[in-house]
Simulated scan of single mutants.
Amino acid sequence: MTDTPRPSAIAADSGHGGLQTFVTAGPTSLVADVKVSAGGLDLGPDPHDLVAAGLAACTTMTLRLYAKRKNWALGAVHVEVRSSREPDMTPPERFDREITLDGDLDAEQRERLLAIAELCPIHKLLTQGARVVTTVG
């Protein structure tokens, strides 16, 4: 028997109104929604927040893996990402990422970790793009 890989994410809407969407990503389920001003009930992160969360999580994991491989004394890693839209810019979507690194790191190590953050797979996906292939069932 072969294991069928599970989808990376599933979103389901009951069809009973509203914008609340049940999302399963990996082994976790949550509700996605939008702000009241956009027609939702603000019961969960909106899709832009979910993308920002992916960038923050991937950045944190990438830095941790790199520091561990180098045996650097990296303490806590805190990454905040803010999503915004600038309609007059190309592309209009903007993600501001702030990284806080604790631990006994010198200036060279901190600079290298900043460069490594730019190599996180989700950062690269957002800056280089991806193909989306859609089918309707």
Rank of each mutant, 00 (worst) to 15 (best):
M1W: 11
M1N: 08
T2I: 04
D3L: 12
T4V: 05
P5I: 12
P5S: 06
R6A: 12
R6H: 07
P7W: 04
S8I: 03
A11I: 03
A11N: 02
A11E: 00
D13N: 09
D13F: 01
S14C: 13
S14Y: 05
H16C: 03
H16I: 13
H16D: 04
H16W: 08
G17Y: 05
G17N: 09
G17V: 10
G18I: 08
G18Y: 05
G18K: 11
G18D: 10
L19H: 01
L19A: 04
Q20T: 06
F22H: 11
T24G: 03
T24M: 01
P27V: 01
P27I: 01
P27E: 03
P27A: 06
S29K: 07
V34Y: 02
K35L: 10
K35W: 01
V36W: 08
V36K: 03
G39I: 07
D42H: 04
D42C: 13
L43S: 01
G44W: 04
P45I: 14
P45K: 14
P45A: 15
D46N: 10
P47R: 06
H48D: 09
L50K: 05
A52G: 05
A52C: 04
A52L: 02
A52W: 02
A52V: 03
A53Y: 00
G54L: 01
A56C: 12
A57P: 05
C58A: 10
C58Y: 06
T59W: 13
T60V: 15
T60Y: 12
L63T: 12
L65Q: 14
Y66G: 03
K68Y: 09
R69Y: 00
K70Q: 12
K70Y: 00
W72M: 08
A73F: 08
A73G: 05
V77Q: 08
V77N: 10
H78C: 15
H78A: 15
V79W: 07
V79D: 05
E80V: 03
E80Q: 05
E80G: 06
R82W: 01
R82T: 08
R82N: 07
S84W: 00
S84E: 08
R85F: 02
R85S: 09
P87T: 10
D88Q: 15
T90S: 13
T90R: 09
T90N: 13
T90Q: 13
P92S: 13
P92W: 07
E93S: 14
R94G: 11
R94A: 07
R94Q: 14
F95H: 13
F95A: 09
F95S: 04
R97V: 13
R97A: 05
E98M: 11
I99M: 07
D102Y: 15
G103P: 12
G103W: 00
D104G: 14
D104A: 02
D104Q: 14
L105W: 15
L105N: 06
D106P: 11
D106R: 04
A107R: 14
Q109N: 07
R110T: 06
E111M: 07
L113S: 03
L113R: 00
A115H: 11
A115Y: 04
A115C: 14
I116L: 05
I116M: 13
A117T: 09
A117S: 15
A117R: 06
E118L: 07
E118C: 02
P121D: 01
I122S: 00
T127A: 12
T127M: 09
Q128K: 15
Q128L: 02
Q128Y: 10
G129E: 12
A130R: 10
A130Y: 06
R131L: 15
V132Y: 00
V133Y: 09
T134Q: 14
V136H: 05
V136Q: 04
G137I: 13
G137T: 11
